[in-house]
Amino acid sequence: MQLDPEDEQILAGERGETRQKMLELLVALGKVFGAEHLVPIKSAQVSGASYKTIGKYGLDWLASLDAKAIVPAVLNPIGMARTRWEEMGIDPDFAKKQQAVVRAYKRLGIRLDCTCTPYYLHETRYSDHLAWSESSAVSYANSVIGARTNREGGPSALAAAIIGKTPCYGLHLPQNRVPQMVIDVHADTSRWGVADYGALGYHAGKLVGNRIPFFQGIKPDADQLKAIGAAMAATGAVALYHVEGITPEAQKNQYDISGIETVPVEQADVSRLFTDIPVDAVALGCPHCSSAELAEIARLLTGKIVTKPLYVFAAQGVIDRNVKIVDSIEKSGARVFADTCMVVSPAMEQYSSIMINSGKALAYVPNMCGGQARIGTIEDCVRVATE
């Protein structure tokens, strides 16, 4: 791998042991995947933030590092809301350990936005090179924005944030971003919402695996695109997809899809995922809610009081921009939390069944929270929470 003189100095230990270790990690990763050089990045997004997932040894490793990020870098959702964790019923011992994780990342220069939707907070542009690690954020950046990032692990994203570069391989290279499979949707999608597109992504991810799909027959908006990608990343390993006439690279490029496998998806493939099992709680915001989604939740809750716990998750920056809307939501008895989500917080483990509007959560809740998941529209979720 070709390194510039400054990188050679870092690798020789002249800029400190932590930077040396971080660059060693990136060089090793690049060699595994055949990268010829490193590429400067615009930003990083670091996973491995919840104490629930990294535990004592992850925290000890973070505490051993001594360097700071040199590019804008944000943190993935943690295991609790930083300022309202008591309201979530979080055990004080867990809270203490989670706070130690947050302090460790802060010391390393990582911004404590704690979100899976960093694109709502920091400008990301077409063709920007990134080092993002959360699966739904990676999918959105690549597919909806047209930026360039592989799905980084937590350590490699942190290393990239500290070095300011990442190995140039995989989805950083244009030739690796072309469609590999066609998903041809045969359904009337004119009335589909976020949940329907999440269910489509849930089904499509199992068909696609780690290939790059090209969708035909759908016209999703930004929130619906977010839902498709998040679900495909959860049930498959999809880090990039294209939608005919919608996503930027599908608009800019005339892809020849005539010779690749085409798989039809029918309405029944999506509808079968919607069940009516009883639920103990309702949770929205996986990935974190947009401003438009918060406004829709507030509208549906107007004049209503929740009869089941209703959790809404969003980035703190999005909450701060929508204070009146959030206040309106919480007048119903629902709670809007930043920094965390239904998947990574131990608070959700108390429920045996959770209703969600997310294909990603439909895939993750059973394994991460230990209960059943029921998908429905935002309208369905609010109805169940208030009936």
Score class of each variant (00 low, 15 high):
190 S>I: 08
152 E>N: 06
261 E>V: 12
140 Y>A: 01
166 T>V: 12
316 Q>M: 10
104 A>S: 04
164 G>S: 02
127 S>P: 03
338 A>L: 09
238 V>G: 07
269 D>A: 04
182 V>H: 00
95 A>L: 02
32 V>N: 08
131 A>M: 09
54 I>P: 02
51 Y>K: 10
18 T>S: 06
11 L>G: 05
138 V>P: 07
274 F>M: 02
59 L>M: 06
225 L>K: 00
133 S>I: 05
178 V>A: 15
284 L>A: 09
184 D>H: 06
270 V>S: 01
186 H>E: 10
11 L>E: 06
93 D>I: 12
273 L>T: 09
74 V>A: 13
293 E>A: 02
259 G>E: 07
348 M>V: 11
237 A>N: 15
310 L>C: 00
335 R>C: 05
223 D>G: 11
21 K>F: 14
279 V>N: 01
339 D>A: 11
100 A>T: 05
122 H>F: 13
302 T>F: 13
375 I>K: 08
21 K>E: 13
79 G>A: 07
106 K>Y: 14
287 P>S: 11
57 Y>I: 13
33 F>I: 07
380 D>T: 08
266 E>Q: 15
45 Q>R: 03
47 S>G: 10
131 A>W: 04
294 L>E: 01
27 V>K: 14
237 A>S: 14
327 D>Q: 14
377 T>D: 09
26 L>E: 01
60 D>P: 08
125 R>T: 11
379 E>K: 09
261 E>L: 11
15 R>V: 06
181 M>Y: 03
35 A>M: 05
380 D>K: 09
274 F>K: 02
161 A>P: 03
358 S>G: 04
165 K>I: 06
199 A>P: 01
